[in-house]
Design a protein around this nucleic acid. Structure first.
Lengths: 177, 177
DNA sequence: TTCGTCATGTAATGGGTTACATGATTAC
DNA sequence: GTAATCATGTAACCCATTACATGACGAA
């Protein structure tokens, strides 16, 4: 999830870790920032897999030591990113991952775009079905539990409508990015 | 988080693991079920801390082996649950935990109820401030990233309004549960 | 007798967090 | 010179997941 988000940002242009972190929050959907304890190990593992090139920007004239490390996508990394996004499978519909796939929808053919949006919508509708089934949650309805359930239902229904709007927009427009 | 949810359900009445799992989903807010790989180890750790009594319901007459294990709250467990809920601190405002605290709001004095609801609202408003600050997310606005951001903002604003309604309801009514 | 679902658990793993440790650069 | 913020990283841990393994009970 984090790897995909990082690849997506580096696909745009090379960056160093600190900047990456700042740009990551909108991509992750929620407004939380990722911690360095996740970020740097993740960058290292991407480098080990050959998808990212690490540029330690040797001591600039007059500087004793490197300060910044620039990370850059390799051709293999770029290739992997496109694939991962275009061939997105079931886990692209899940909560954490969906936001990341969504953020990069503009870099993928409309067909894949529709597949991701519709997959997510299907996933949410499954949940709604389960949540509406009274057999699923036995026991009495405490006011607060019931209220929580109601709010969760409404939020999900709202997301479904949002997706429907986007899907319809994709279908009429010709390759509207 | 999971421990609190379990304690809350057991506070109502003793249950065995399988039933607990089913009743857990609405409490956790999202519609996902917890896995047994989380549930049973968590129950064991609660037992080790002396909050839960494990009743292996010895071989019923005619049965070779136990099938069900019943878990029951000890007095210490009950005590701990009330405290944890009533004295709920900052992490009760966070995403995962809030739903659990919310579900059990009926078991706590109105004062604590208001503190939890208002704490959550404050937390969300902080996020909104950060998200609205253009300095926070530099770089150009890709259509999809912008759309994602917009939707996240709207959802959060909606939750704030929801909380405000509940808070106001708590303030006018006298101990409305 | 076989199938579905009830029921309990372990082992390995995953994907993140916090807390810590360090140092450079910039603005006042 | 000193404070803020830019910048990079490690170690320990947390809390969940999946995959696996086992077995009882009831209904067709």
């Amino acid at each position: 999830m984090l790897d995909l988000a990082i690849l997506g940002l580096l696909d745009e242009r090379p960056m160093h870790g600190y900047e990456l972190r700042k740009r990551l929050s909108p991509v992750l959907g929620a407004f939380r920032a990722v911690s360095y304890g996740s970020l740097y190990p993740c960058l290292r593992s991407l480098a080990e897999r050959g998808w990212v090139r690490v540029d330690e920007a040797g001591p600039a004239p007059g500087r004793a030591r490197r300060t910044r490390v620039t990370y850059e996508l390799t051709p293999a990394g770029r290739e992997h990113f496109r694939r991962a996004l275009t061939e997105a499978g079931p886990d692209a519909w899940e909560d954490g991952t969906f936001a990341v796939h969504f953020a990069f929808l503009g870099r993928v053919p409309r067909e894949a775009r529709l597949r991701i949006l519709e997959g997510r919508r299907r996933r949410l509708e499954q949940r709604l079905d389960a949540a509406r089934d009274p057999a699923g949650h036995p026991g009495r309805a405490d006011t607060w539990t019931a209220e929580l359930h109601r709010h969760a239902l409404e939020s999900t229904e709202r997301e479904v409508r949002w997706l429907t709007g986007l899907i319809d927009g994709q279908r009429v427009g010709q390759d509207h990015r």
